[in-house]
Design a protein around this nucleic acid. Sequence first.
DNA 1: CATGAATGAGGGTTCATTCAT
DNA 2: AATGAATGAACCCTCATTCAT
Lengths: 207, 207, 207, 207
Amino acid sequence: MTSSAEPVSRAERKKLELRREIIDAAFDCFAERGYHATGIADVATRLGIGHGTFYRYFQNKRDIVDHVVDELVARITGALTAENAPDAVSTLAEYREQSARIGESLARIFGEDPRVPRLLLFEAPGIDRAMAERILDLFDLAAALTAAYLSHGVELGYLRADLDVDNTARAINGMILGSAITSLRTPEDQRALSEAVRRVMYDGIAS
Amino acid sequence: MTSSAEPVSRAERKKLELRREIIDAAFDCFAERGYHATGIADVATRLGIGHGTFYRYFQNKRDIVDHVVDELVARITGALTAENAPDAVSTLAEYREQSARIGESLARIFGEDPRVPRLLLFEAPGIDRAMAERILDLFDLAAALTAAYLSHGVELGYLRADLDVDNTARAINGMILGSAITSLRTPEDQRALSEAVRRVMYDGIAS
Amino acid sequence: MTSSAEPVSRAERKKLELRREIIDAAFDCFAERGYHATGIADVATRLGIGHGTFYRYFQNKRDIVDHVVDELVARITGALTAENAPDAVSTLAEYREQSARIGESLARIFGEDPRVPRLLLFEAPGIDRAMAERILDLFDLAAALTAAYLSHGVELGYLRADLDVDNTARAINGMILGSAITSLRTPEDQRALSEAVRRVMYDGIAS
Amino acid sequence: MTSSAEPVSRAERKKLELRREIIDAAFDCFAERGYHATGIADVATRLGIGHGTFYRYFQNKRDIVDHVVDELVARITGALTAENAPDAVSTLAEYREQSARIGESLARIFGEDPRVPRLLLFEAPGIDRAMAERILDLFDLAAALTAAYLSHGVELGYLRADLDVDNTARAINGMILGSAITSLRTPEDQRALSEAVRRVMYDGIAS
DNA sequence: CATGAATGAGGGTTCATTCAT
DNA sequence: AATGAATGAACCCTCATTCAT
């Protein structure tokens, strides 16, 4: 029993496959040369297809970059949410572990391929107002998620009772953002940076 | 006693003035419509000058954005360095005060005019590899400055002896960066965010 | 048995045809209005194509004029060399006949269409140093060919033994050049001029 | 008695002087970079004057090149006519001497400064239809002068009675033209070329 | 009279998009 | 369905010319 039930003929499958390849090729091009410096022809050439074909799969140049970002956003929200529900932890130690896990996850996404932060943080926001809003939405989403974790911790008492949950969430996410940007230049020492972030979070910097 | 000593005739002064106006108008346009969506003609029209005039003051479109960024970078590095030498403090309390001052400064720059973070963080990096590098340079500079403060604190003993100075500096700057981006949407509650950042820094989040 | 063996599909053939038409239209424009006064749009309009189409066939404006000149140079070198090997003659009479033939050929090329000498002698040299060099190369080539003929004649004894072959070749070519320029104003009496050139060559002017 | 009587005040003289300097500077620029590649600003800068000043002395860019050519044409017609009246000679030997003298003169003008033939033959004709006509006029003038010499010779019997005077004149001038162009690449061996021209004229090439 | 700041027409070139094959 | 030839809007930039100082 294959993955039937879905109405995917062989032709349909091929179409989806090519669609995916176009998204990937576009990601490559946009991340390497930049959105504006990339022509539709570049994307098509990289795939060895005619550039007219592109328009059978996507509305226009602006359309594809939305899909490229969709993909990256999905990856990130996946890392932020997958198997990491706020209420799955009940002690500070568990929380530390969980945040280490999330941090690990994000570090992998950003660190493994610097084109990801480059596209998301350096290319996308400059494309468009709409795209900039999308990126801000992503930040807000991440802040909301983090805030949820923090709230949980406050409720359970292992985090400071007077914690400004929302703003602290933003501050923490800022550190993650800083890590992502750092990975643009030095993709290697993500681990140490990640550790430093957690130290600040839990211990502060004072002696 | 004329206005000698200064190397500026009246014509010269007017020229410098126009030059400045062009930079400002370009900043406006780039921040509002984006670098790529802005034509030289737009900048000129906004000033009510002929677009050919633009080219008497700047080499080309790419040239002006460098000057716009120069200006913003100068403002920021000014805020980061002016009257805030690392060795001017010797206790944790003083350090808190100083960082509050710096934070205040930056918050003003970013918060007063959201076009500043928009241009610097959302427009500039997508223009060019070279420009992206400039922005990364700015991050690195800020990280180096912060690291210097931290080092000083470690030496004097009011900061943790085992502080990973460099990475902690990056983490802290990440929080500031996060604040700047937040100010794109909510320019108002910068103060609370700023406070939250400092709380994380000094007290951590744990209860 | 299809039209195989030839590497030209129908589309390919159409492409080459348009390419040729563009070259011809450019020749028309350049010869009539001059290179600098001609815009790419002029060339395109003359053909009834969009001016963007031009750039599918040629790199830029400078590129096409090279191709236009290529064509003319090919026509001329063809006339100078085709079926007119220096060693095909062995008497003065034959030589006269041959030079008459060559002269005839050139006169036809220059005289039939005054746009040819106009473009080659009046437009091209002013375009560029590189193009000027191309024209000088053409002169040198012609001089070398003529010198070869003369050498052959000296060896066989039907030309003066003390002939300064190279410089005489240049002098003779100068007369041809003069004819070409004359044809700019009076395309008709090329024949008489051609005859006068040959008289000078063989008999001199003295009585 | 000096050159008084003329209404030249000192200011007037200075003005004429500058006018001349502008013509010379324009000649330099046009010959070196080409007419189209030369800007009015280039000419002015070379002289160290403001480029607005240019327009106090000449109508426009097209105007100045006419004056530059005027100057060169005057030099050439001077060489062709000065002290060389057609009727000043009465034997073939004298004629040879005279043509040698004229050739010498022209060779000096063209050979001493290759910018002269470059401007006159390579730059000027491509500027304009009107300018091309001027150059053709110069050719015609030279042909007429040469024809006058030849006519005189025919009348006096030292030139062939059946000489096609006009066309032969064109042929001869063509040789001179060829010399001038040759001098663009090899300004040195003008003398030998000049000699070859005269040999062809008087002796033909046949043995 | 000299200057050079200002101007804008003009032209070369790119590239996203369409559509006939 | 795939293709790529054709298209023209759009934009950057130059430079001859004008004119207020």
